[in-house]
């Protein structure tokens, strides 16, 4: 077991990881994910798909909120813009899906330039609420631009065919999401270790100090918005394809909140945390359902109509308890476990 990091060259310092076991476990995880679609049934597989799509979106939010410290309550606005960009380009104008995905990234990125502008002046919760306002305004724009978006009618979306491979089946679609998730993960990990990523973190920790050190706040804050919106837009396209029907209804405000909850539960500012948080939050309702099924007969008799609400209440309780006892998130928990493992029986 390693106890310390001894880094001697710059190359080692910026390497993704210098640990062979990390590479090994990652490879095993990827292999497991590649095999999974062939053995899971459609229901279990749908969880995997949702997790992968959510990971993409949450990693996008993580760049803005986790790295740069700009809280966004309106990220669902980028999600819905991405989904519509894809749907309009592919379903309406019969463009190839690859163009659709590109548009799903670029169009929200352009929109984020407008949304990001106030961030140059606003801070903290004021900025959060401005982004919230933008997500409502984006919905109104989509509903009003009937000629392009079909308004409230929505657009039906088919599973795509890329490079001659059809992603029609559930398993194939999961692979597509897996591909995007892995790509996004590498992209964000690399951004974090680059000059740009370090600038983001400097802005998060203290923006005035960052400016003193020569970081152009305007450029980097907007860059954070653009990158974040690009990735979230791609997630929106995937989500739209998963729903097979894109409408404003399918992207409720709740998704913004859920994405933030995932970041907090996972551990703010960590890509690993974003992944762990996603798995936790997506599977939580299923876990509460399992707990309930243990007592299902008594429960059903007790509160015939209220049992379902009790489940959602339990969801809230778990989130509160989690934040109460592990406010650094799952990543914090993971570090604690690792440290205990290394130092045991000593405490430090």
């Amino acid at each position: 077991m390693r106890t310390r990091d001894y880094k001697q060259t710059y190359r080692e310092l910026v390497a993704l990881t210098d640990s062979v076991p990390v590479w090994l476990w990652s490879a095993i995880l990827i292999a497991a994910l590649i095999i999974a679609p062939h053995i899971l049934n459609a229901y279990t597989l749908s969880f995997l798909t949702i997790i992968l799509i959510t990971v993409v979106g949450v990693l996008g939010l993580n760049i803005l909120t986790g790295y740069t410290g700009l809280i966004s309550l309106g990220h669902v606005g980028f999600l819905v813009t991405g989904a519509y960009a894809y749907a309009v380009l592919v379903s309406k104008y019969q463009m190839p899906p690859i163009v659709g995905f590109l548009g799903a990234g670029v169009i929200p990125a352009l929109a984020s330039l407008i949304v990001g502008a106030p961030s140059l002046r606003l801070k903290g919760l004021y900025l959060a609420i401005t982004t919230l306002a933008f997500s409502f305004i984006i919905n109104t724009v989509i509903l009003e631009a009937r000629t392009v978006t079909n308004g409230a009618r929505g657009i039906a979306v088919k599973r795509p065919e890329l490079f001659g491979i059809s992603f029609e089946s559930e398993a194939a679609f999961t692979y597509l999401c897996l591909g995007f998730a892995v790509l996004t993960l590498f992209a964000t990990l690399n951004i974090r270790r680059s000059r740009v990523g370090r600038a983001f973190v400097a802005i998060r920790d203290n923006d005035i100090a960052a400016r003193v050190m020569g970081i152009n706040l305007h450029t980097y804050k907007l860059l954070a918005f653009v990158t974040s919106a690009f990735i979230t837009g791609i997630a929106g396209a995937l989500y739209g394809i998963y729903l097979s029907f894109v409408s404003v209804e399918g992207f409720p405000f709740l998704l913004s909140i859920e994405a933030l909850a995932i970041l907090i539960v996972g551990g703010l500012g960590s890509a690993l945390g974003a992944v762990l948080g996603t798995v936790f939050i997506v599977l939580l309702p299923e876990a509460t359902r399992l707990v309930f099924s243990l007592f299902s007969t008594q429960m059903d008799a007790l509160f015939s109509t209220g049992a379902q609400e009790l489940k959602s209440m339990l969801y809230g309780v778990v989130i509160i308890l989690f934040l109460r006892f592990q406010p650094r998130g799952l990543v914090g928990l993971w570090h604690d476990v690792k440290r205990t493992w290394v130092h045991w029986p000593l405490r430090y």
């Binding site: 229901y43 749908s46 969880f47 949702i50 989500y239 998963y242 729903l243 209804e249």
Partner: peptide, 13 residues
Amino acid sequence: TARTIQGVKKVIE
């Protein structure tokens, strides 16, 4: 909507 899709898959599968 996403939960409807999952619910239907669960009921069937």
